[in-house]
Amino acid sequence: MAIIETEKLTYTYPGAEKTSIENISIKIEEGEFVLLTGPSGCGKTTLCRCFNGLIPHFYEGKLEGKIQVVGLDVVKHPIHELAKHVGLVFQNPENQLFALSVEKDVAFGLENLGIPRKEIRQRVDWALKTTDIYHLRERPPYELSGGQQQRVAIASVLAMQPEVMVLDEPTSFLDPLGAKRIFEDIHKLNKELGITIILVEHRLDLTAKYANRIIIMDNGKVILNGKPREILDSEKARLIGIGIPKVTRLYQFLNGKGMRLNYVPLSSEEMAKKLKEVFKQ
């Protein structure tokens, strides 16, 4: 069974005239790494809010259609119930850390669930070690660098041991190396712990290589949904104007001039490897 399944999901914010997402029908399988992208304002964040019940429980408004997450009907289960299964990490690390020490922040969700102290301690330490910030556990989060803060945010969601993690542009404020490390960490959570990942990101150059599925939205609708190589090479993707990775564009350019590589690269490593093969023949 799919871990997330929506059927004709349509939502309008309270007081808004227009729907923000419209007729979304998608299925996400357990263990997938899904990249969600599309022009600004197309409804990515809105869709993410549906995954853990912020919509419709926190934001009211009008929700139509069906949505199930880990077998639970989102409309019928409160957010704190869903929070055990779906973790959300937001763009701005500053506004998702409330405590005055890192470990207290990571413990926050578990405390809310009323988990015994001994187990909280174990799970907090585990989450801190998995995200490589164990040494920072007693520091106040606001004194950390952006990258470290975003790691704390990830750890605090991880401690709740969710099956699904949704990350909404988690690295926009970070320098390229910091961003790359976070993406690698997320990839590791997916590969090693089997956590299903939904990552919202504009910069496909940095992230396309990790995904085994890309969903592109435009104007509240899902326009493309499928394998990264097929999607990024499609005419439609180019027309919507998403940031197709440079190496994929290089591939398309060469293809157009008659140099056929027969393999759509998503990263510089893949492109270099392919070119080397061709040149060495």
Binding site: A83, G87, F90, N92, F98, N112, I115, I120
Partner: peptide, 26 residues
């Protein structure tokens, strides 16, 4: 705006799940 974002993050981490909240520190 900030307090809205904070509220959202709190909700996402099971705020108010139980009356018997536990605590990391004792």
């Amino acid at each position: 705006r900030r307090s809205l974002e904070l509220a959202e993050a709190m909700e996402s981490r099971a705020w108010g799940a139980t009356k018997n909240r536990t605590n990391l520190y004792e």
